[in-house]
């Protein structure tokens, strides 16, 4: 079966197409009428909470699970009709680092290379190249059991690249990593895309999707509820969030009043904790103003930070409800401080 080229020779090619994909496990609908296109040479981030269907979509696209219905192609090959061909063009790094702890780093990579049906010499030279690229050369001769979490992830990612895939699937690649290792991994992923690889990654962190992805698809309850560039998504959600805490909780209301008019949305104050959140379109421009206003009213603050909206806030805006993990806490005032008018 030949490869089907989508799009004209000069125009952008689609590496992954998903049309009307459905998948259920018993009575649970894991995917509902999912549509998604990923352009070749770009990074698509699937953003969603636990249980949203991210992993199911990855499993269906990597031929680990059969979809119930829908047209899905990867690299031009149909995932149900020609899964064997799909496997020749993809690499997968799943949620847990899939490495054999009893083998050395090098042996792990050579084994995967042999299973990609590379000859021995090629498998060995690729293993050496990848160990070098992922700064594992020194550890290459040690059994993977002795590796740190970051090293395991790097080895796992290296293993997914042994076959020089056109399309790479990364399921929550940075979960469980320390901030330094996470940043390193982000740079590595970026480097891969620069060399022409298409990446579909899943994440629970807007920050990660924002940093890495060309486009973000927000998935909830098996459905894609929003899709666009990070900027488009953020403008739907609003910009950053200024978060501060007043030293004297009784001054919470006074502080909210003092700050009214600043920022791009409703300012929320929580009497119980003294925490105040100010949605701002461009955070840095408002920092000085906020400090000045509070100083003028003689309100002391104990904590101050500027951050991206959390997944929870994105969800709240897009769906009007909290992420499924937090649903039971909806009545909790601590959560409701994130609330924001949907039309703001």
């Amino acid at each position: 079966m030949g490869r089907i080229h989508i799009g004209s020779e000069s125009g952008p090619k689609t590496a992954i197409t998903v049309k009307n994909a459905n998948k259920s496990y018993g009575t649970v609908l894991a995917l509902r009428d999912v549509d998604l296109d990923v352009e070749a040479g770009t990074i698509m981030a699937l953003l969603g909470p636990n249980g949203a269907g991210k992993t199911t979509l990855v499993r269906v696209l990597t031929t680990l699970t059969r979809p119930d219905s829908g047209e899905l192609t990867v690299g031009g090959y149909d995932v149900t009709r020609n899964p064997a061909a799909v496997r020749t063009v993809i690499g997968l790094a799943g949620q847990s680092a899939a490495i054999d702890e009893t083998l050395t780093g090098r042996e792990n990579l050579v084994m995967v290379g042999r299973l990609y049906h590379l000859d021995k010499a090629t498998a060995k030279s690729r293993a050496a190249k990848l160990l070098d690229q992922f700064e594992l050369t020194d550890a290459g001769g040690r059994v993977a059991k002795t590796y740190s979490g970051g090293m395991r992830r790097r080895l796992d990612l290296a293993a997914s690249l042994v076959g020089e895939p056109d399309i790479l699937f990364l399921d929550e690649p940075t979960t469980g990593l320390d901030p330094r290792s996470r940043l390193d991994l982000w740079e590595t992923i970026q480097g891969l895309v620069n060399s022409g690889v298409t990446v579909l990654l899943t994440t629970q962190y807007l920050e990660e999707a924002d940093y890495l992805a060309d486009r973000i698809a927000v998935i909830d309850d098996g459905q894609i509820i929003a899709e666009g560039t990070p900027d488009e998504l953020k403008s739907m959600v609003g910009g950053d969030v200024l978060e501060l805490r007043v030293s004297d909780r009784s001054q919470t209301d006074a502080a909210v009043t003092a700050l009214s008019g600043i920022g791009s949305g409703d300012i929320q104050g929580d009497q119980e904790t003294g925490r105040i959140t100010v949605p701002v379109s461009d955070g840095t421009a408002f920092v000085a103003q906020v400090i000045r206003e509070l100083d003028r009213k003689d309100i002391q603050i104990s904590d101050f930070n500027l951050r991206r909206p959390s997944l929870d806030e994105v969800f709240l805006t897009l769906t009007g409800k909290s992420t499924p993990d937090n649903e039971s806490n909806d009545e909790n005032p601590k959560k409701s401080r994130f609330s924001r008018k949907r039309n703001s």
């Binding site: 499993r59 990597t62 031929t63 680990l64 064997a84 496997r87 020749t88 993809i90 690499g91 997968l92 799943g94 949620q95 847990s96 680092a97 899939a98 490495i99 054999d100 995967v112 299973l115 990609y116 049906h117 293993a159 997914s160 076959g163 699937f169």
Partner: peptide
């Protein structure tokens, strides 16, 4: 349990 089987199944082996 460690995801090894998933890796093997995603390979053209």
């Amino acid at each position: 349990s460690k995801g090894m089987t998933d890796r093997f199944h995603s390979l053209p082996m």
